[in-house]
């Protein structure tokens, strides 16, 4: 089962989207390009600001760190040079977190939320028609306690009982854009995880889903991101259709 996405759930924000996987649900809103405060203004490019708001409570150092990770990623996507001295403001509201019944380490949870945040932000940027240079897909994988257990898009229980989690983002061409890993793993395993996530990322935006699933026999290879973006663009351009 792929992740669930909705585009344009909100009315006030320029672009908005929700993304939910097995663990988290994130609502993203994008405003931009808008007026920037003097202190954040950059003379030759647009400033990208990310705000993360947890379900309950106010954000702390954890949210600030996540914001810096996501902002750095988005800066590589958005064509910031096109809109100098403006601001692209991305607000990410976490609306669902894993249930309290499953115990998860703090560091593991911090990394596990990254793909949901990144994908929601990306889809909201697309919905807000912010010009971007590449397509991005973020994925989560974990290594099980047993020897050869790479799980892509794990469930709550799998994440709770794993020895390492990896959040990676790839472009549609398979370039690595983001890597956050935590836990115990060696270089070989990391490469293995990276390859699995790269294949999953390319499959999510694949033009023809048949080839991908045939070539490696993976189950979860619906081009979910392509479908969501296509639907969104179709909806946004509906007024152009005659009659």
């Amino acid at each position: 089962m792929g992740p669930e996405l909705t585009t344009h759930p909100l009315t006030r924000a320029d672009g908005s989207a929700t993304f939910s996987n097995n663990l988290f649900t994130v609502l993203a809103a994008v405003n931009g390009p808008i007026e920037v405060q003097r202190r954040d203004e950059l003379p030759e490019e647009a400033a990208v600001e990310v705000n993360i708001r947890p379900t309950s409570g106010v954000g702390g150092p954890r949210e600030r760190w996540l914001e810096s990770v996501i902002a750095a990623l988005l800066r590589t996507l958005v064509l910031v040079k096109l809109h100098p001295r403006t601001l692209v403001q991305v607000t990410l509201q976490v609306t669902k977190e894993p249930t309290t019944g499953v115990r998860m380490k703090r560091a593991v949870k911090d990394v596990a939320i990254i793909p949901a945040l990144a994908n929601a932000a990306f889809l909201a940027l697309v919905d807000g028609a912010v010009p971007m240079g590449r397509t991005m897909v973020a994925g989560l994988a974990c290594l099980g306690k047993e020897v050869d257990g790479v799980t892509v898009d794990p469930t709550e229980k799998q994440v709770a009982g794993c020895r390492s989690v990896h959040a990676m983002a790839y472009s549609a061409k398979g370039e690595l854009l983001l890597d956050e890993s935590v836990g115990r793993f060696d270089a070989g395993e990391w490469e293995d995880v990276g390859e699995r996530l790269r294949v999953a990322a390319i499959a999510a935006v694949a033009r023809d889903p048949e080839d991908e699933s045939m070539s490696n026999g993976d189950a979860a290879t619906t081009p979910w991101l392509r479908q969501a973006v296509e639907e969104d663009v179709k909806g946004a351009g509906a007024w152009r259709e005659p009659g």
Partner: peptide, 15 residues
């Protein structure tokens, strides 16, 4: 009760 307004609601709300 915490009511923190964010730019999701309206771009006029500052963080």
């Amino acid at each position: 009760i915490s009511t923190e307004l964010s730019p999701i609601g309206s771009p006029a709300f500052e963080v």
